[in-house]
Amino acid sequence: MVFIQSCSHSIIQLMIGNFSVLASLGYKLIKNIMQNVLSILFCLSLFYLSVTSRVKAYVTVLQFQGVLLTVLLVFPFIGHFSIYALILPATLFFVKVILIPKYIKKIILDLDIKRTIEPTIQQITFLLIIIFSMTIIFIISNVLSKSTDIETIPFASGFTAIAVGIFVIIYRKKLIVHVAGFLVLENGIFLFGTAVASELPMMIEIGVLLDVFVVVFLMGIAINKISSTLSGFDVTALGRLKD
């Protein structure tokens, strides 16, 4: 825990540092602050994700992350509002906060999946792994940000989310948790994308969102089928295909 404290301390330091440097830059400053704050919140949700042992908590975290991302998207338009610009955040909100979590909840209820996530390693170890990778990612991002113009905190948070997503998949057995892990990964990419720049045209962004949704939808169907035909919700049921 001491480690976490020191880590978060350094993160806050970093944030404040940015804060003071950019203090004079008005709008951009606010955007930056907000971005950083939201990213930190995002990271915290990841920590929560790594210590919780309830499946439903995952869904809540996903919802929370969805809200954060929506806010992140809406934020730039505060100055110059337009309906058109709101399409993307609205879709995002709809898909990530309402549709997908609901769908996952429904699956959990329908299939009567056990509430605990059945981890394969101890929670504390998992947390340590995540903290470790997070530190590395932050250090690397910091190094990289010197050569390129990137926002370190959103960048690193996004990347951490990607790593956490992967680790959730690797260290958890339940398929539904795998789906959640995948979504965390997607969220991470999204956050990361906003950090990089909003280069992608909106059509494409919406396409991406749709794709993600359909993937999750198909995965849900597949889990349904798996639980009915293979009578299991985790990877141990999937071992037929061998070389």
Binding site: I170, Y171, V235, L238, K242, D243
Partner: peptide, 14 residues
């Protein structure tokens, strides 16, 4: 390289 578990597949990417 011939595991059947999907978690290994993902780990390989990493």
């Amino acid at each position: 390289l011939s595991y059947t578990d999907i978690r290994y597949y993902i780990a390989f990417i990493l």
